[in-house]
Design a protein around this nucleic acid. Structure first.
Length: 423
RNA sequence: GGAGAGAUGCCUGAGUGGCCGAAAGGAACAGUUUGCUAAACUGUCGUACUGGAAACGGUACCGAGGGUUCGAAUCCCUCUCUCUCCGCCA
């Protein structure tokens, strides 16, 4: 949610920035400011009335103490009248605030001015590419065929147990996944991220604070009997640790990481893009989260980007980094880098990580603030990134490292897997 | 699941209708002093909205929502959560 102060003070900048997301924000922002004027005027009137009522109430008390009952009773009547009009005003104020709020939550975050213009993924800016794209032997297979050949992943068994998008991992690939999780967590903690093991179900307030609710309700699995949601990412519980918290500025940056399963309903996708591990309802991910000082959050974003790049280097996967264009960015993000690894057998790039700065968009909703000395509290900036999501990493590893003799495990992972070849 | 108790500021905790945005202690921060790795003293010390250039004001908030009353942290109702005991279970 955008900050009112920002809209009030820098309306033109906000319009300019939102234009990057292909939105003509002018009428909406002006409407918000109209509500704001209304709100302030109404509140002032209401405050004046309430003040009057408070003064009268005090006088009534004094008069009673002095035994002046008649005068007190007279004042009482006055007070009742004041109360009647203040009640009406309070109702008005509530309506105005609600309207303003309902409008505010429909406005996406303002993209950073560094965000490239554009509407579709084709407009994303490819800012970096490294690693060698492997040349596979004749007869190389996509990962779902490899999974079958080596009896690694059973998609149909998953359908039997649960449904499509819930694969069963077996043997060496189960071990490989566990290895990846441990490897990613070790790397993150070595980089100063505090490891968190959060609940994987969250309540409404949490889903709301990070922006999944109310509008993206359909994307989460919902346990209606207890009104809890299965998390779509560890970002939700981990960031919410700091909901309604005021930290001291010297505590920043706060760095946290966590492994969790992630659950996404993502209904309505079919075809080649969702084959095998490309898109799942349940998958594993290690997430990194930072809470940063507003002056430093973009440096933090670069640090996180470099950190994720390091992971892909360790895994010896060719990858590229895209700076998402305005049209391809998420609702809440101000700047996002997507990481894609090249899947040699499918001959396409697969998104394996997304690293974003949300600026104050999330912290405004969750009232995550910091205090610098005696200065007024300010909203902190929140950032997060996948480091990394497993399924497409596994897909890339299987496909890119296949040889006629079997699938090779990258050196960095061997201490974790305990084997160097899947055959 | 059964029975009971409770929810107050960063923490402990007082406060059962007006003198309470809230005692006291602790923590934290600043200053003074003595000196030495600590103590004493003094001061500051919730959040949000809002008026004002500022000084300084106004309003709301004592788990949440509603009600009674001229007036509610305090009384009533509903909800949520926490704790204790019993039961069940990992």
């Amino acid at each position: 949610m955008l900050q009112l102060n920002y809209i009030r003070e820098k309306k033109d900048e906000a319009i300019q920035r939102l234009a990057l997301k292909n939105i003509d924000a002018k009428p909406i922002l002006e409407k918000v400011l109209e509500f704001d004027n209304d709100r302030r005027r109404t509140q002032n009137e209401l405050d004046t009335l309430l003040n009057e009522a408070n003064v009268i109430a005090k006088q009534v008390g004094d008069l009673y103490k002095q035994g002046k009952k008649a005068e007190a009773d007279e004042l009482k009547n006055k007070s009742i009248a004041v109360k009647e009009s203040s009640g009406k005003l309070a109702e008005q104020l509530k309506i105005i605030e609600e309207q303003q709020y309902n409008l505010l939550v429909t406005i996406p975050n303002t993209p950073s001015l560094k965000v490239p213009k554009g509407k579709t993924p084709a407009d994303n800016e490819n800012i970096h590419q490294e690693g060698e794209i492997p040349k596979l032997h004749a007869g190389a297979k996509p990962h779902w065929e490899l999974a079958e050949q080596y009896d690694l992943i059973d998609f149909e068994l998953g359908v039997k147990l649960t449904g499509a998008g819930f694969p069963v991992y077996k043997g060496k690939v189960a071990r490989l996944q566990r290895a990846l999780i441990n490897f990613f967590l070790d790397k993150a903690t070595a980089a100063g991220y505090l490891e968190i093991q959060p609940p994987i179900m969250v309540n409404e307030a949490s889903g709301y604070a990070t922006g999944q609710l109310p509008d993206k309700e359909g994307q989460m699995y919902h346990s209606t009997i207890d009104n809890l949601y299965l998390i779509p990412t560890a970002e939700v519980p981990i960031t919410n640790i700091y909901r309604d918290v005021i930290v001291k500025s010297d505590q920043l940056p706060i760095k946290m990481c966590g492994y969790t399963p992630c659950f996404r309903r993502e209904a309505g996708s079919y075809g080649k893009d969702v084959r095998g591990l490309n898109r799942l309802h349940q998958f594993d991910k290690v997430e990194i989260v930072q809470i940063a000082h507003p002056d430093k959050s973009y440096q933090t974003l670069e640090d996180m980007r470099e950190y994720v790049a390091g992971l892909l280097r360790d895994l010896e996967l060719p990858f590229r980094i895209l700076k998402l264009c305005g049209g391809d960015m998420s609702f809440a993000s101000a700047l996002t880098y997507d990481f894609e690894t090249f899947s040699a057998a499918q001959e396409k790039w697969l998104e394996v990580s997304s690293v974003s700065n949300f600026e104050t968009f999330q912290s405004n909703r969750m009232k995550l603030r910091f205090k610098e000395g005696d200065a007024k509290t300010q909203l902190a900036h929140t950032l997060n990134g996948s480091a990394l999501a497993l399924p497409r990493i596994v897909a890339s590893l299987l496909e890119n490292n296949q040889t006629p003799e079997g699938i090779k495990i990258p050196k960095a992972l061997i201490p974790y897997t305990g084997f160097s070849l899947i055959n």
